[in-house]
Design a protein around this nucleic acid. Sequence first.
DNA 1: CTATCGCTAGAGCGATCTATCAAGAACGAT
DNA 2: ATCGTTCTTGATAGATCGCTCTAGCGATAG
Lengths: 199, 199
Amino acid sequence: MNAGPATGRPSTKERIVTAGAELFRRQGYTGTGLKQIVAEAEAPFGSVYHFFPGGKEQLGAEVVRTSGAAYGRLFTAAMETAPDPVTGVRDFFTGAAHTLVETGYADACPIATLALEVASTNEPLRQATAEVFTGWIALGTAAFAKAGAGEREARELTIALLSALEGAFVLARALRSTEPLEVAGESVAARASALLAAP
Amino acid sequence: MNAGPATGRPSTKERIVTAGAELFRRQGYTGTGLKQIVAEAEAPFGSVYHFFPGGKEQLGAEVVRTSGAAYGRLFTAAMETAPDPVTGVRDFFTGAAHTLVETGYADACPIATLALEVASTNEPLRQATAEVFTGWIALGTAAFAKAGAGEREARELTIALLSALEGAFVLARALRSTEPLEVAGESVAARASALLAAP
DNA sequence: CTATCGCTAGAGCGATCTATCAAGAACGAT
DNA sequence: ATCGTTCTTGATAGATCGCTCTAGCGATAG
């Protein structure tokens, strides 16, 4: 049970999940074939069905959960590093803009494309994306509440933040511009500032 | 050249575009086959390549432009009907929430799913989505400028609105809840109120 | 009536998709 | 050394993909 070698390349399963995550986020779920994933992961085709007996759908669910958790940690790190929540929000949006530019407008939200694709067509995967979003909302609510916001304000601020971020990603990737991320980030920062000032 | 009969069913080309628009918005571009489109449109398969010699990509581009223009008119109508811009914003978001619930969380933004799918994989279609978004930004900027905002404020408010709307659609469809639309709408309304008050 | 042309109609092509399967390699336990 | 388990490996099945092609229908003009 080679879970994770301390040295050398990651395990086959890890390589498959990583490659799947990258391709799903860039090309979507239906737009990515298993053949392409195993080619990118340098893994044998059969290994997919060894590690994921449920096939593409099970791989998709695992990718959603894994990348969702990783992105949640990214948000938490930005909020904990910043001196105050408003700065944390700004940092998170500018960081997202940097990543977007560095990857040629490919890497935005790790699950948004898949989420829209499966929302009305694949109930198990829709639930996986819903669980990730719910987790992110809990994460943000806790962070803003810790900063002094009421429970209700913290939750609404988080949902507004996630909405602005996801939508800005859509516009930014289509327009190949970081302007939406900058404007949306500033808008959320302003709202956070207003909500945190008036308890 | 049967462009549009005054009575009876729409032309074959119109039925193909309508069916394509509905399926692309719900299942995405790569997730929808031409066979499924012609079945839904009750059109012969060959007609697709008669009206769209460029194949699926050309059909996709026409769908994007057509539904983009229609959705832009929906926004303009909401803004012109409302007594003031802030109310217009609220109406637009609540209207979107109603549509979403009525269609079982299927009909949100007509081009968002496709836009994310093709952003890094299909340059012609990416450009089509970019043109639609650019048009929407121009539409909103004009509306807010007419209401008294400066050119810069009007543009940023529009981009913030579109970001919040698109992102709220992502969350709402995945979570099967209208809460993101309500919260995001209120957030944008608050920002619009602030920006329009202080010129 | 005949010729023309826009459109209908679907069989079929090569490619690609997900998924299955059987056999072999690697490795630890006894 | 032998067994058992885990993982690797790719050939292949069966369905579906986008797309091409030819044949025929129906309305209109000469």
